[in-house]
Nucleic acid binder design. Structure first.
Lengths: 191, 191
DNA sequence: TGTACATCAGTGAACGCGCGTTCACTGATGTAC
DNA sequence: TGTACATCAGTGAACGCGCGTTCACTGATGTAC
């Protein structure tokens, strides 16, 4: 492994990237420094050359996970035409999303953890959450729809979280299905 | 402190009760045996006379928290007339509920944790979750409203969780307010 | 009802373990001449 | 361009700490006669 400054910057990015996925998979308390560093083929001691503390890493990784979530949502829209309530619902409330929390929306994976975390983490998620609300409102494309956008975002986050709880696959699907149908009906009314 | 069999049964209940509140306040990983036992004025060693392991306690406390939640929802309804979508929304989406997770709904406090927990805990919450859905459906009082009931439950859970994340009190209130308004409008349509 | 004994609820020291963090060290990288 | 030296990214042993769990013990409770 290299020791150049460029290598260091690259390693920091790799640590952050793996941390952002582990965070969503294991929760705010679930990521361990030594496991994380093993996952990027480094030893645990090196960690503190990149981050001041575990808290510092978690904050940075949380921010990254939330930023990535926004980016991928916007990109998935531009890839196949304009984003609509339908396209948002279909991707957010999909089995693919439910079954892959580590690459999914950090709100669904971590909002419960962040709700009881320190102020810094709550602040970070709050900042992104406001933007997620705005994004949904834009998708709806109605100036008076802020409350609707908030309500639907809450519903999607709740649905994905609860669908991940349900042990019976059919009942888990049922939750996603119900929320999706609900949103699609609402989308029809809006058009 | 007593040593009789009746005392033991009483102590077990006290441990379970405190555990059920600490669980909602601190999360599945946040409850420590020695802190818990201190909170009921016992020493940590005695714990294993009541429960086989920490996992065993967490499962029992999770079940209790979820059971209490159902009971209090039903009781609050019968106290002041019939439960309606409006009365459910007003109590679930209240600041009081948001600000007191330890005595609130375990779905809002713990679904994110349980989603990545072991099968036993997921099973326990799944069982209650199905009943929560049924309860909301009963409140709506429409045989075809299962999907609606599920969607609204998801929205309430998401709204309370996200309102607990938001650091700005106004924006936090805004989330509760939006979801409440949404549900009340829907309640009007149903009548 | 009273006594002698067995049971067992609760105590608190001790255990191994994994964690976050520190630090003396190594050897490659970057720089000054 | 080549050499000598300083810097610094990464290593891995060691640290203190809190955790879940165990266990020998104490003394009150419950029981048998």
């Amino acid at each position: 492994m290299g020791h150049s400054q460029a290598d260091k910057a690259r390693n920091r990015e790799r640590i952050l990237e793996v941390a952002a996925t582990q965070l969503r998979e294991l929760g705010l308390d679930g990521v361990s420094i030594s496991d994380l560093m093993k996952a990027v083929d480094l030893t645990h001691g090196g960690f503190y050359g990149h981050f001041a503390s575990r808290d510092d890493l978690v904050a940075a990784a949380l921010d990254k996970a939330l930023t990535d979530g926004e980016a991928s949502a916007i990109k998935s829209g531009s890839a196949k035409g304009k984003r609509t309530l339908k396209s948002v619902a279909n991707s957010y409330l999909s089995k693919l999303h439910r079954d892959n929390p580590d690459s999914g929306c950090a709100l669904s994976a971590l909002s419960g953890d962040v709700a009881r975390s320190n102020n810094q983490n709550r602040e970070i998620m709050s900042k992104h959450l406001a933007r997620y609300f705005d994004n949904i409102q834009e998708v709806i494309g109605d100036n008076d729809s802020k409350e609707l956008a908030i309500s639907l975002m809450c519903m999607m986050v709740g649905a994905v979280t609860l669908s991940r709880v349900m042990t019976d696959p059919n009942r888990s699907d049922e939750i996603l299905q119900a929320a999706r149908k609900f949103m699609l009906q609402l989308g029809d009314e809006k058009q």
